[in-house]
Amino acid sequence: MDLILPYLATLAIFFFVYNILTWGLNIQFGYAGVLDFTFITFVACGAYFSGVFALGPGQKSTGFEWILGLSWPFPIALVMGALAAGLLGIVIGLIAINRLRSDYMAIVTLATGTVIYGLVSNYTPLFDGFDGLAGLQTPFTQWLNINYNQFTYLWVGFCAVVMVICWFIAQRILNSPLGRTMRAIREDQEAAEAFGKDSVRVRLIAMSMGAVLAGVGGALLMGFIGAFNPAGWTSGETFVVWAALIVGGRGNNWGGVVGSFVVAVLVNEATRYIPPIPGNATLIPTVRNMLIGASLIAVLWLRPEGIIPEARRRFYQLPLLPGRRTPAEGVGSAGS
């Protein structure tokens, strides 16, 4: 029991964080059709910035150096991390979305992310290069006098609260006229522009709101692990989130939940806890990647729209003016 509960709590934290990440990518790709192949860069941005807002000042003499170092309370640092990721979303969006069609957008996001990765991991004054940030005191513990296991349970609750807020953000965008316009642009960008929709503005909103959720997820990881370095956000990590979204079903946030459970928890995180086989240190990670790839292929063959496809918005779900005839009467009168 002493081992199982903290283990389950850890899995729950990863599940909640991956839900947030999958919804973020869903806003970008599932709603607006933006092919963001550097999603993990926004996660990293949230993690790094929440880290340097919450950590104390770094010192070059001790070999730990980073910008800011403001020792702010973690919840505020989390918001700053999310905002930083949202800003980066706008910057990368301006490079990739402006005047580019989706296939080129994919290449440009990937390239931009690679440039940022090279910069962050080599330029140590920013986030201490390859060593990364470390030594963040577990949030809340200085006020609450709890041990590490108790902190883990507390963090499950904190992640759950943040996740619910992110759910409302994602759902409200999806169900608004803004979400409808995003989906129209995803379906046919040129036709949407012919109706007066500013596709660059709308896709930039999708890009930055998705990046905000990515940043929130990254900050939650930073708070939990207390450290973050470039090994944690290689471009392969982007495709774990992509796989989760495609497997679960794009355009539908419940699909994101299913996908993040199957891919990110069941396959990706749970296998991390299997003890390594002697002499075969890389076997488990390799099997994990194969499983993710296999689940992706299986879904694309058998159910290309994902386990839970995008919901069809039926007419009775639309708000009607009071006193307006009901849809049922409408059917009867339509003939000509």
Binding site: P177, T181, A184, E187, D188, A192, G196, G251, R313
Partner: peptide, 22 residues
């Protein structure tokens, strides 16, 4: 150039200008 994965009704709700919900 319809929006294929939007319903017919939704296709009609996209065009009107000045939508404050956007």
């Amino acid at each position: 150039r319809e929006f294929p994965l939007l319903t017919v009704m939704e296709n009609l709700l996209v065009p009107p200008p000045n939508q404050r919900g956007e």
